[in-house]
Nucleic acid binder design. Structure first.
Lengths: 179, 179
DNA sequence: GCGGGTAAGTATGCAGTGCACACATTGCCG
DNA sequence: CGGCAATGTGTGCACTGCATACTTACCCGC
C-alpha cells in the first residue's frame, strides 16, 4: 500500500476495506486503528480525519454489514409464511457464518447506540417485516441472531452429515411445531 | 480495599467479585486487569498468579454467569411444552436484562473456546434439554439469545405499557403459530 | 518449633494502543 | 495565482497486557 501523492485519494473507503479484511482476520477487539493505518499506508493518526474515533469506524463497518444482510434478505421469497421464515433465517445464518466477525460486531454493544448503525438496523427490520409481517419480526430476528451465535461459537452443531441449512430448518420447525 | 497482611487471602474470588461489578459498570472491553487489581487493593500483576491472562479471567466470569442462568432455568416448570418454552425464554431474557454485560460476555467470542466456558455451556444445554426436550433445544436457546440481544441493544422494544415477559411471550408465540 | 520450599504478592520494564495537539502539504476555488 | 480548508504527519501522553526478576510469609516435615 505505497503511494506517491501526499493525499491518499479515498482514505475513508480504503480504511473500510482494510477494516473488513483485518476484522475477519483477527476479530474486533484485536483490531487496532494503527494496524489499519499501516495497511492503508498512512500515518497512525490519519484515520481521525475521517472517523471521530475507533468506535465510529467500527460502527461504519457494522453499518456496512447491515446493508449487506439487508440486500440478501430482500431477495427472500416463498409460498407460505413458514417457508419465508425458514428461508430468511437460513440466509441470515449463512451471512453470519461467512463473515462471523462482522456479525459479532453488529451484535456487539459498540454499535447499538451509534446513529448510523441504528438506522441500518431499522432498515433491515423494515425489509424483513415486509416479507414476514410484523408479528413474526422479533422472533425471526431473534432466531437468526441466536442460531448464528450458537453455530459460530460451536455451542450447537448440525448433526453428522447435516447441512447448516437443514439444521436451521430443523431448529425453526422445532419451535414452530410445539402444540 | 486496604489490607494489612502481605497475602490477600482469597484474591481469586475477590477478583471475580470485583470483575462482576466493574464488568457491569463499564463493559467487557473497557475492563482492565489493572483496574481490577486496584479494586482488590493489590499490585497490577498479582492477578496473574490466579488467572493465566485476561481472557482466562473473563472466561471465569462468563462461566460464573452460565452457572447462574442454569440455576434459574433449572426451576422452570409448566404444564405444556409450549408453556415451558415461553417460561424458559422469559427467564433467560430476564437474566440478560438484569446483567447485560455478563450476558454479552457469555455470548462473545472470547469464551467460546475456553474449556471452562464450554463445559458450563454444555451443562446449561443439558438442563434446558431436560425441561424442553432435544428437538426444541436449539430453537429455545436461539430465541433466548436473540431476544436478549435485541432487547439489550434496543433494536426491539416491548409495546407501550407491555412488560418484557409479555413481549417475549408474544414473540415466541409469533413463531410458534406460523401455519 | 523451626527451617526451608513454595505459593502468593511486588517492582520494573517493554511494546503496543487510543487519542490530543501542533505542524506540514496540497488540491481547489475565487 | 494566492490563500484557505481539507487532509495528512510527528510528537507525546496516559494507559494497557504481560514478561521477568525479586520479595514476603504461610505451611509442612522433621
Amino acid at each position: 500500500m505505497e503511494r506517491a501523492t501526499y493525499h491518499h485519494g479515498d482514505l475513508a473507503a480504503a480504511l473500510l476495506a482494510a477494516g473488513l479484511e483485518l476484522l475477519e482476520a483477527e476479530g474486533a477487539d484485536r483490531l487496532s486503528l494503527r494496524a489499519l493505518a499501516r495497511a492503508a499506508g498512512v500515518s497512525p493518526n490519519a484515520p481521525y480525519r475521517h472517523y471521530a474515533d475507533k468506535e465510529d469506524l467500527l460502527a461504519a463497518l457494522a453499518a456496512h454489514g447491515y446493508a449487506d444482510v439487508r440486500a440478501r434478505l430482500a431477495g427472500v421469497t416463498g409460498d407460505t409464511v413458514r417457508d419465508r421464515l425458514v428461508a430468511t433465517v437460513q440466509e441470515g445464518v449463512r451471512f453470519a457464518l461467512a463473515r462471523p466477525q462482522v456479525f459479532r460486531l453488529m451484535a456487539g454493544h459498540i454499535c447499538s447506540t451509534h446513529p448510523a448503525v441504528r438506522t441500518a438496523m431499522a432498515e433491515l427490520q423494515a425489509t424483513v417485516g415486509r416479507t414476514l409481517g410484523e408479528p413474526l419480526l422479533p422472533g425471526a430476528l431473534a432466531l437468526t441472531q441466536g442460531l448464528s451465535t450458537l453455530l459460530i461459537d460451536g455451542s450447537a452443531r448440525p448433526g453428522a452429515g447435516e447441512s447448516v441449512d437443514a439444521f436451521v430448518e430443523r431448529a425453526v420447525r422445532g419451535v414452530a411445531d410445539v402444540s
